[in-house]
Structure formats: structure tokens, C-alpha cells
Design a protein around this nucleic acid. Structure first.
Length: 488
RNA sequence: GGAGGAGUGGCAGAGUGGUUGAAUGCGGCGGUCUUGAAAACCGUUGAGCCUUCGCGGGCUCCGGGGGUUCGAAUCCCUCCUCCUCCGCCA
């Protein structure tokens, strides 16, 4: 969401920024301006009429107390007239607000000036590199290595076949030492971020309401990327439906079937059915939840609908959770292995700060916190500054960390750290008060992966592979794996 | 799942149809007193929006939504949340 007053005052700045996101998108400013004008006109009209109603209602009370019925009747007529105006203006207000919100909620955040212009990942700019890729002769990819490794019971430690049978494509079951290594990675990351970087560990809900996703920006535009868990109340729906059906039949009977054409009956029935189809799909009989696509959603929503104490900022949260993504639109990409799954684990970092200056400093800090994980695992990586076309909707500036994958002879994304300004805060109504007595201000939010656990496992397997197909356990993970040095 | 109760300002807690955006207490802020502090006393203290260059004026909000009424925190409907008891359950 955006500050409508800022758009009014600087329409050209918004126009230019949205055009940087996507050529032509800035023209939306004209529509916003039109709807905003209509909205304010309607609001003013309504308020004027409400004033008339309120004042006269008080006078009515006084007139009645004085037993002046004639005066009371005269005033009541005035109020009745005002109410018509209120109703009409109210409808116009709701219509304009609906159109305006629909536009505003669907627009992406404004990229900061230092973000490079670009259409897709080709436009991203490398910022730095760390570590030297190790020379590996004929490196195998993680899937081949993982499937070849056997658990004590003789099953693949990276068991795609079994997972696919029960859940379909893009799922995996880790078994034995590899499963433990994934847990070790998560524990290591969490200990680092909480113990050394000051993040508070959170165990959040994994199912959230649509409002939470609207808050962080995944909705309304990207519902196809999410897994939705529905729970339709069919008993209540059909009970209500039958009542409406009976009522309509009664209505026909009252009119008399001789006085109504079969065409009219058909029309009326269809209309009723269409209405109920709409209700069927609405939230009225359904209370859906979404599986979180990232812990950014619950962690950021921790501050929703609040006025925080400014002296406590910044707040830093971390959580290790599964993430669920439908991966609609990525058919055919990364179909082999664990790079792109419907379910994966991730350690997420979220920071709540007070303004842009603090936010940009925090972005550097947060990215550093993510990089530290890779450094301690001794995995080569590079830092990319994302271009305007490759950033997520909520972001104003994003760094991606890409880890070296020997099998692909390239760097692959393993973390993404974003500064979101007050974009999410406005959608969530998350504010803070600098000092007692001062106006509340919107907080600024950041989120980043610290790191994607599944992909880190992939990187460890590939970078620590040995000629014989065994995997050397990185030093920092050994304490978490009972001292195990090699997975074979 | 069954039975009952409750949702009011940062917190506690009055208020059941007419100057109530809301008594009172605590907390916060400012002040008096004091060498300083405490205590005491006085004042002040919700949010959002519209309008105005500004001073100011106005509207909305007492869990959410809808309704009754000239007028609703107060009455009705509905949903949500919380509490107590019973049942079931990781």
C-alpha cells in the first residue's frame, strides 16, 4: 500500500518509479488520481450530510423534551433528507474506495535510486565474491550423489522415488545421515543467528489467513504460487441454500404459476443459483488458510496491528520453518534434484526498523548475517544487487547471495535479502511511537534468508564431494552430527 | 463437540437509547513544591480520515460486519476472539 497523499503531492516520482519496474506501469497514476478525486468528493459530501443529521438529531431530542412535537417533526424531515444524501454519497465512496484499493494493493513497491535498471536476472549486478571454487574432476550433481548414498536400511539417503509416490513431483524424503545433516544445518544457522547476531528465535504458525499474506504482499496478486487449505462448512451452506430455495418456491406459489412464465421462473432460478455459487466460493462458508511460502510471512506479521515502543527497535526475528510453494509457472525448470521443490526448509531473518536510513544499514547487516553462514561452511558465493525487473513486489532494494554449484559450474541463489520500506507496514498497520506523546509512524521491514536449508544441503553435498562419492562433513556441522566426519 | 460468561482508550474498569470520544483509577507527559528525589497537588494524555496557506472546522471509530431508530457503546441479527465447566485429543 502507498501513502495516497504522497502520490497526490509527487505523482511524477511515482510514475517514474513504477515505469522503472515495468515500462508503462506508471500510467496507472492517472487512474489513481481520478479515483482519489471521486473518493474525496464523496467523503466530503457524506460528512457534510452527516453533520446536518447529527446537529438536527440533537435538536430533536431537545424539542421532544420541550414537548414541541411540531418542531420535532420538521427536524425529522430534514434528517430524512440528509440520510438520503448520506446513503448516496456512501455508495459512491465505497465504489471509489474499492477501485482505488484494488489498484493500490496490486502495485509493486518503488525501487530505490541505486537499484539498477533491468528486465530480468540478466540486469543484476555483481557486488562481491567470496571464496575460491575448488577444482573437482567431473563433479557429480547432488541428486546423483544423494541417491547413490545408502541409509542403514539400504535406501537412498536422498529418496525421490518414495516421495514422488506419496506426494508427486518436486518432493523428496531425506533419510539417515543426509536427513541429519539437514537438521544440523538448520540448527547451526539458528544458533549463529540467535547466539551471535541477536535474532530472537520464533516458532511461528505455518498456516495463515489471507490477511497475513496481503500484509507481506504475496496477495492479492500471487495466489497461484501458494498452497491453499480449505475447510468448507457444507452443513451450514446446504442448510442456508435450502432455506433460500424453499423461499423462492414459496414466492412462485404466492404469485401463482399461472401468472408467471416458465422463462421468468428459469431466469429467477438461475439468478438464485448464481448468487449461491458466489457464496460457495466466498469466505462466508469457507475459512481458508494458506501454507506459508516463507517464514517472512508469519515473522513480519508478528508486528501487525500494533503500535510498538520505538525504544525497542530494531526488532530481529528468525525462524526455521518448512516453506510451501506451488511453483506454478516454473514447469520444466530445475526438475532434477532438490533445487526447486514444493516443500523446503529455510531459516528466515526479519528485521523491524524505524526508517529508511536504519533500513538500509540493516540490509547490509542482514546480508552479512546470511553471508556468515556460507563463510563458516566455506562455500564460495557471490553477492548480487538485483535490478528493477527481478525484485519481489514488496522490495525497494534486494541483494541475492548465490552459492557455487560445481555440477552446474555456476552460482545459484541461496539467499535473498530485501529492504521493503514501509510497504508491508502500511498493509499490516504496523507502527511505532518514537517517544510517548508523539505520532505513531509506520515501521520499515526487512526480510532475508539465512539461509535456504535445502539449497545449502545441495551446496554442501556438491562442494564437499569426494572421488568415491562420499561427502565430507564441514567442520562446523560435526558437533551437530555426533562428530561424524564423512557421509558414505 | 456440548453448556455458560465476556469483549470499552497503554492497562484496569464504569457506563443499557439523546451535548458520552466516553466517569474513575493506574501508567505516560508537563508543572508546583524540593539542594535533588520521593510523596502530595495542579494541568495534560487515543487513533484514522476530510477540509484549510495557517488558525481552525468537521466526520468516523467502544471486537468485525449487518440491522432497528430522528438519534446506538447502549436494542436486534451474525461472525470472530477470549474465559469457565464437561467431552474428545497430539
Amino acid at each position: 500500500m502507498f501513502d495516497i497523499r504522497a502520490i497526490r503531492d509527487n505523482p511524477d516520482a511515482f510514475r517514474a518509479a513504477w515505469n522503472r519496474r515495468k515500462p508503462g506501469l506508471g500510467d496507472i497514476v492517472d487512474q489513481i488520481h481520478a479515483h482519489d478525486g471521486a473518493l474525496r468528493k464523496a467523503v466530503t459530501d457524506k460528512q457534510d450530510a452527516e453533520k446536518v443529521r447529527n446537529e438536527n438529531s440533537k435538536l430533536i431530542g431537545r424539542a421532544k423534551a420541550e414537548k414541541n412535537e411540531q418542531e420535532a417533526a420538521r427536524l425529522m424531515a430534514l434528517v430524512a433528507e440528509a440520510k438520503l444524501t448520506i446513503e448516496a454519497a456512501g455508495e459512491q465512496e465505497a465504489a471509489a474506495k474499492g477501485l482505488l484499493d484494488e489498484i493500490l494493493m496490486g502495485l509493486p513497491n518503488l525501487p530505490l535510486a541505486e537499484v539498477p535498471q533491468g528486465q530480468d536476472e540478466e540486469g543484476n549486478v555483481e557486488q562481491s565474491r567470496w571464496g575460491e571454487p575448488k577444482r573437482i574432476n567431473n563433479p557429480k550433481d547432488h541428486a546423483d550423489l544423494g541417491e547413490a548414498l545408502k541409509s542403514d536400511f539400504g535406501f537412498s539417503q536422498m529418496d525421490f522415488d518414495s516421495a514422488v509416490k506419496m506426494s508427486g513431483a518436486r518432493f523428496v524424503a531425506l533419510r539417515g545421515p543426509l536427513a541429519r545433516m539437514e537438521r544440523a544445518l538448520a540448527a547451526f544457522m539458528l544458533d549463529l543467528q540467535t547466539g551471535e547476531h541477536g535474532y530472537e528465535e520464533v516458532s511461528p504458525p505455518l498456516l495463515v489467513k489471507d490477511q497475513a499474506l496481503i500484509g507481506t504482499g504475496q496477495l492479492p496478486k500471487f495466489e497461484v504460487d501458494l498452497f491453499k487449505a480449505t475447510n468448507f462448512d457444507s452443513d451450514r451452506f446446504w442448510a442456508d441454500y435450502n432455506v433460500a430455495h424453499e423461499a423462492q418456491l414459496d414466492q412462485f406459489r404466492d404469485i401463482g404459476y399461472g401468472n408467471i412464465s416458465s422463462e421468468e421462473i428459469r431466469e429467477a432460478s438461475l439468478k438464485r443459483q448464481r448468487e449461491w455459487l458466489k457464496k460457495y466460493n466466498s469466505g462466508e462458508y469457507n475459512d481458508p488458510r494458506y501454507l506459508i511460502p516463507t517464514a517472512e510471512v508469519p515473522l513480519t506479521n508478528l508486528v501487525r496491528d500494533q503500535i510498538l515502543d520505538g525504544s525497542r527497535l530494531p526488532l530481529r526475528f528468525t525462524a526455521h520453518t518448512p516453506c510451501f510453494r506451488s511453483e506454478a509457472g516454473s514447469a520444466g525448470r530445475d526438475t532434477k534434484g532438490m533445487i526447486r521443490l514444493h516443500q523446503f526448509n529455510k531459516v528466515e531473518l526479519v528485521s523491524i526498523v524505524e526508517n529508511e536510513e536504519a533500513g538500509l544499514a540493516e540490509l547490509e547487516r542482514m546480508t552479512g548475517c546470511a553471508e556468515e553462514v556460507l563463510k563458516r561452511l566455506n562455500l564460495p558465493f557471490r553477492r548480487m544487487l538485483l535490478c528493477t525487473g527481478d525484485m519481489g513486489t514488496g522490495a525497494r532494494k534486494t541483494y541475492d547471495l548465490e552459492v557455487w554449484l560445481p555440477s552446474q559450474n555456476t552460482y545459484r541463489e541461496i539467499s535473498s535479502c530485501s529492504y521493503c520500506g514501509d510497504f508491508q507496514a502500511r498493509r499490516m498497520d504496523a507502527r511505532f511511537r518514537k517517544e510517548a506523546g508523539t505520532k505513531p509512524e509506520f515501521v520499515h521491514t526487512l526480510n532475508g534468508s539465512g539461509l535456504a536449508v535445502g539449497r545449502t544441503l545441495v551446496a554442501v553435498i556438491e562442494n564437499y564431494q569426494n572421488e568415491d562419492g562420499s561427502i565430507t562433513v564441514p567442520g562446523v556441522l560435526r558437533p551437530y552430527m555426533g562428530g561424524l566426519e564423512t557421509i558414505a
